Computed example of a mutant assay.
Amino acid sequence: MLNAARRTRGEAIFDTCNMILMLVICFVTLYPIWYVLINALNEGTDAMRGGIYWWPRIFSLESFRAVFQSEGIMQAMWITVAKTLIGTVIHVFFTAMVAYALSRRGLIGGKLYIWLGTVTLFFSGGLIPTFLLMKDLNLLDNFLVYIIPAMFSFFDLIIFMTFFREIPEGLEEAARIDGANDWSIFLRVVLPVSMPVIATIALFHGVYQWNDYFTGMIYMNDTTLQPIQTYLYRVVAESSSNQMLAAVPGGINRSVTSQSIKLATMVVTTLPIVFVYPFLQKYFVKGMMIGSIKG
């Protein structure tokens, strides 16, 4: 009884310390996001005085109004939305298609393809050869530069393959008896039962596409084709803060500053991913667990 009491007391102490540690980590992680949000919701000129840590001192939506009225920012936002949606759908479908083929044990040269793909996880051609390749493919200042190079990922292929190999072979055999070919099996049997791993990869790649600023910075000189992340990066890096204010139609509101517009734009670009994640979380967790059982 004494040993049981000691173990119970020790477990209680551990649980308390663990909870305190988790709360500290959550606070350190979430407070910067909260700080940006409350300063974006505060009146711009008042926010420049500082001292806003927990709640907006003078609530105002003028910075968000300026963001949504700016043609340059909204154009960049539409590019980001388009490349995220199109890029994610194509990436998931193409990677799943290749993974399904490689997951079949009868594929001729399958082991060779997997070995060659594994090499790409550790070695790449580098930035300069990649830039020259994009130039030769006429992808500079081309929207497709966001889509084509990101169509396939061998890391995601491994996750897909692990899942596909766990699908009972009886499903495919039954479909073949009914006269289905490989395409029909893949589209009508494999994909419908693969929603957990599809949601996982879609979340992975969707977040990548949404946050990617480097592609637009390297391959895009046309500002109308730059995503919002590249737009923000260039404004901050070039210290051209007044570029945002100049883009606001109807003149500059005195309650809006370049800093407040930056913060409001950061909130606008972050919230979509934050809202999407809870809807994919149950598939995300299940897909990750399945992908970690074998491999």
Rank of each mutant, 00 (worst) to 15 (best):
W115A: 15
G117C: 05
T118L: 15
T118F: 14
T118Y: 13
T118E: 11
T120H: 04
S124D: 10
G126F: 00
F131C: 01
L132I: 09
K135D: 01
L139F: 03
L139R: 01
D141I: 09
D141T: 04
N142W: 05
N142Y: 06
F143A: 07
F143P: 05
V145M: 06
I147T: 03
I148F: 12
I148G: 03
P149S: 07
F152R: 04
F154C: 03
F155R: 00
L157Y: 03
I158G: 02
F160I: 02
T162P: 08
F163E: 01
G170M: 09
E173I: 10
A174G: 11
D178L: 08
D178F: 12
D178R: 03
G179A: 10
G179T: 12
G179R: 12
A180C: 15
R188V: 08
L191T: 08
L191R: 05
S194A: 14
M195R: 14
P196N: 08
V197R: 02
I201P: 01
L203H: 01
F204H: 00
F204G: 03
V207Q: 05
V207C: 02
Y208F: 13
W210G: 12
N211C: 13
N211L: 13
D212M: 02
D212I: 00
T215C: 07
T215W: 06
M220C: 09
Q226C: 04
Q226P: 03
Q226D: 07
I228D: 09
Q229K: 11
Q229Y: 02
L232F: 01
R234T: 14
V236I: 15
V236Y: 07
S239T: 14
S241G: 15
N242V: 13
N242K: 05
Q243M: 11
L245Q: 08
A247H: 04
P249Y: 13
G250C: 09
G250N: 07
I252E: 14
R254A: 15
S255R: 13
T257F: 09
S258K: 02
S260Q: 10
K262C: 08
